[in-house]
Computed example of a mutant assay.
Amino acid sequence: MTMFKLPELPYAYNALEPVMDEATLHFHHDKHHATYTANLNKALESHPELAEKSIRYLIAHLNLLPEDIRGAVRNNGGGYFNHALFWDMMAPERSTSFGGPVAGQIEKDFGSFEKFKKKFSAAAVSQFGSGWAWLVWNKDHLEVLSTANQDNPLTEGKKPLLALDVWEHAYYLQYQNRRPDFVEAFFWIINWDYVNELFEDAKKSRKCGAAE
């Protein structure tokens, strides 16, 4: 049975400071992401026929999974996949800048970067309880949306390009209950190079949610 492995961070634990401190990254990656990884593997043990399926396939095709593990894959597979994306969607402050093809598409679909930022921030701040804010590619245009818990837009056939984790464990050690401050600071560490890569891949893909 193929086992999913906890991915290493693509930067040092203190590389995102002061926006995201070292203690938060250790706690978030080493504890929370590791737990999702272990629980996903445990859920899949009873279904070796899924051994060759990618995590993207599993999340995009939840309705096709055996009923006895569907909930566990939705929660733990979602947690595994969402966090794997999240780490790569961030980079040390000012190491990348807003630009490239996705910048043009954002201006086309939202009117300006500031209008996009306002809409994305509102989705993040207003998400009740635990969840995520997303920028996604939906067939031929960009959308901003939020999901509860560890749900992922792939399940709806939409391609994630940018994600922000607004579970309390993502920011509470550093920002306490000041989620709006965390959301505002996040824009300083977005890895726009990676967002552009995902955008180009999403446009090339003929059908959303295809296995990779």
Results as ranks from 00 to 15, higher is better:
Gly129Arg: 06
Lys115Ala: 12
Ile106Cys: 04
Gly71Trp: 01
Val125Asp: 10
Lys42Trp: 00
Val102Gly: 09
Val125Ser: 04
Lys108Ser: 14
Lys119Asn: 09
His47Arg: 12
Asn63Ile: 09
Asp109His: 14
Lys108Glu: 14
Gly111Cys: 04
Gly77Pro: 00
Leu64Asn: 12
Glu45Gly: 01
His83Glu: 12
Leu62Pro: 03
Leu44Glu: 01
Ala103Lys: 15
Arg56Thr: 12
Asn82Trp: 00
Gly99Trp: 10
Phe113Lys: 05
Asp88Asn: 14
Ala123Met: 13
Ser126Tyr: 10
Glu93Gln: 15
Leu44Phe: 07
Arg70Leu: 01
Glu107Gly: 02
Ser121Met: 05
Leu85Asn: 13
Ala84Ser: 15
Leu62Gln: 07
Pro92Val: 05
His61Gly: 10
Glu114Cys: 00
Thr96Gln: 01
Gly78Ile: 00
Ala133Pro: 13
Ile59Met: 15
Ser112Gly: 06
Leu85Asp: 14
Val125Lys: 04
Ala72Pro: 02
Glu67Tyr: 02
Lys119Thr: 14
Lys53Gly: 06
Lys115Gly: 05
Met89Gln: 12
Ile106Glu: 08
Trp87Tyr: 15
Gly77Met: 01
Glu114Ile: 00
Ile55His: 08
Val73Tyr: 00
Gly79Tyr: 10
Gly104His: 12
His61Leu: 11
Ser54Ile: 01
Asn75His: 10
Glu114Thr: 06
Ala60Met: 09
Gln127Asn: 13
Leu50Phe: 06
Phe86Asp: 15
Glu52Met: 08
Gly100Phe: 06
Asn41Ile: 07
Pro48Ser: 07
Arg94Gly: 10
Lys115Met: 11
Phe120Trp: 03
Arg94Lys: 15
Lys115Val: 05
Arg56Ser: 13
Asn41Cys: 12
Gly78Pro: 00
Arg94Leu: 14
Leu50Lys: 06
Phe98Trp: 06
Leu50Ala: 11
Ala84Phe: 10
Phe98Leu: 07
Gly71Glu: 02
His61Gln: 09
Ser97Gly: 13
Ile59Leu: 11
Phe81Leu: 06
Phe113Thr: 06
Ser112Pro: 08
His83Trp: 14
Lys115Trp: 05
Glu107Arg: 11
Val73Leu: 02
Gly100Asn: 02
His83Arg: 15
Arg56Tyr: 04
Ala133Met: 07
Ala84Lys: 14
Ala133Ile: 13
Ala124Val: 11
Lys115Asn: 11
Lys108Asn: 13
Gly71Lys: 01
Tyr80Phe: 15
Ile55Arg: 03
Lys108Gly: 08
Pro48Asp: 02
Phe120Arg: 02
Gly100Lys: 01
Val73Met: 06
Glu93Arg: 15
Lys117Leu: 05
Arg70Glu: 00
Ala103Ser: 07
Met90Thr: 12
Phe128Trp: 14
Ser54Trp: 00
Pro92Met: 07
Gly111Ala: 05
Gln105Tyr: 04
Asp109Ser: 10
Phe120Leu: 05
Lys42Met: 06
Leu62Ala: 04
Phe98Ile: 05
Pro101Met: 04
Gly78Ser: 03
Lys42Thr: 12
Trp87His: 10
Asn82Ala: 03
Ile69Lys: 00
Ser46Asn: 10
Tyr57Lys: 09
Gln105His: 14
Met90Ala: 13
Ala122Thr: 03
